[in-house]
Measured scan of single mutants.
Amino acid sequence: MFYPNSPQTSPQLTQIPYGQQYAMMQRQIQQPYHPFATTEPQARLYPYHYQGPIQQEQGGFITQQSTAASPQYVQMRVTPVDQSIMSGYPNQTANGSSSSSFNYNIHPQQQQQQQQQQQQLRHHAMPVGSVPLQDDRYRKQLIVNYLAPDVTSTDLHELFSRFGELDGARIIYDKQTNMSKGYGFVYFCHAEDAKEAVERMSGYEFHGKWLKVGYSTNPLNIVPSNSSPYVHAGSRGAAG
């Protein structure tokens, strides 16, 4: 039997160049792979992502010199942007860049009308829970959420009447099932009393439920100042 490094198959040491006398086997001759043993700084910083320098080929596509990437890492192929796409944008300079302001050559009167329309939209648009300043009635009506099913309009009136005089209180019921929808409205005579009720009743436990109280901004629920107070009856038909 002959071994790869046996004296019968191995040459004389004098015939082997210096430095390879003890590297006779194939696994010894093959050098191990060192990912950080390279002179390129990109490979030292990113050993798993770097795959060699990027070269520009004919046709405008950018390719990489090395083989496919590892399945664990996804390499994105980048193509140059066609400058003709950006030619339609206004205020574009000769080098292809555009300024931040756009001039669509709008007539001054049209621009003024658009600004007025935007101001009107901001004036009428009102986020949930906010209180408008032009109508004091919005500051007097509250919406009470997360009410228990057994709470009546009379219970709601008695709960909030300790903060001040009320114009009314009612629970909203479903017309088909005649069941409470879980929320109601309270109408105060003074805005200061309503503000105190919002601050003190939010998070209050009532009939096993934690109440959420806020201003009601729905104009359909506003009680006119010259109208008669609501009837605080315990029956659902009268309260709904």
Rank of each mutant, 00 (worst) to 15 (best):
P4M: 01
P4K: 12
T9Q: 01
T9W: 15
S10V: 11
S10W: 15
L13P: 03
L13F: 06
T14Q: 01
T14C: 02
I16Q: 05
I16F: 12
P17V: 12
G19A: 06
Q21W: 00
Q26N: 15
Q28P: 10
Q31C: 12
P32D: 07
Y33C: 05
P35L: 11
F36L: 12
T38I: 03
E40Q: 07
P41M: 15
A43I: 12
A43E: 03
R44D: 13
R44V: 15
L45F: 00
Y46Q: 11
P47G: 10
P47M: 14
H49M: 14
Y50S: 03
Q51I: 13
G52K: 01
I54T: 05
I54G: 14
Q55I: 10
Q56P: 00
E57C: 10
Q58W: 00
G59V: 15
G59Q: 13
G60P: 10
F61N: 12
Q64S: 08
Q64N: 06
Q64L: 13
Q65R: 05
S66A: 08
S66V: 11
A69Q: 11
A69G: 12
Y73T: 03
Q75Y: 05
M76N: 03
M76T: 02
R77N: 15
T79S: 05
P80M: 03
D82S: 05
S84Y: 12
S84M: 06
S84Q: 15
I85T: 04
I85D: 05
S87T: 07
G88F: 15
Y89N: 03
Y89L: 10
P90R: 08
A94F: 11
N95V: 08
S97P: 04
S98K: 01
S99F: 15
S99W: 08
S101F: 06
S101Q: 11
S101W: 14
N103F: 01
N103P: 04
Y104F: 11
Y104P: 12
N105W: 00
N105E: 00
H107E: 09
P108C: 14
Q109W: 14
Q109R: 03
Q109K: 13
Q110D: 11
Q112N: 07
Q116A: 14
Q116M: 10
Q117W: 14
Q118H: 13
R122N: 09
R122M: 15
H124Q: 02
H124C: 00
A125S: 07
M126N: 00
M126S: 07
V128T: 12
G129H: 09
G129E: 07
G129I: 05
V131Q: 08
P132H: 08
P132N: 12
P132R: 03
L133K: 10
L133N: 06
R137A: 13
Y138L: 11
K140G: 01
Q141Y: 14
L142W: 14
I143H: 07
V144C: 02
V144A: 02
N145W: 12
Y146A: 00
Y146G: 03
L147Q: 14
L147F: 08
D150C: 01
T152F: 08
S153H: 02
E158N: 13
F160W: 15
S161K: 03
E165Q: 08
D167A: 05
G168C: 15
R170E: 03
I172W: 07
I172G: 01
D174P: 05
Q176T: 10
S180T: 08
K181S: 04
K181Y: 12
V186N: 13
V186Q: 11
F188L: 06
C189D: 01
H190N: 10
E192P: 10
D193Q: 10
E196R: 06
E196N: 13
V198P: 09
V198M: 12
V198G: 05
V198K: 12
V198W: 13
S202H: 04
G203Q: 08
F206V: 06
K209M: 03
K212N: 02
Y215K: 06
Y215G: 07
P219E: 13
L220W: 06
N221A: 10
I222V: 10
I222T: 10
S225F: 10
N226F: 03
S227D: 13
S227P: 06
S228A: 10
V231A: 15
V231G: 10
G234C: 06
S235C: 02
R236V: 04
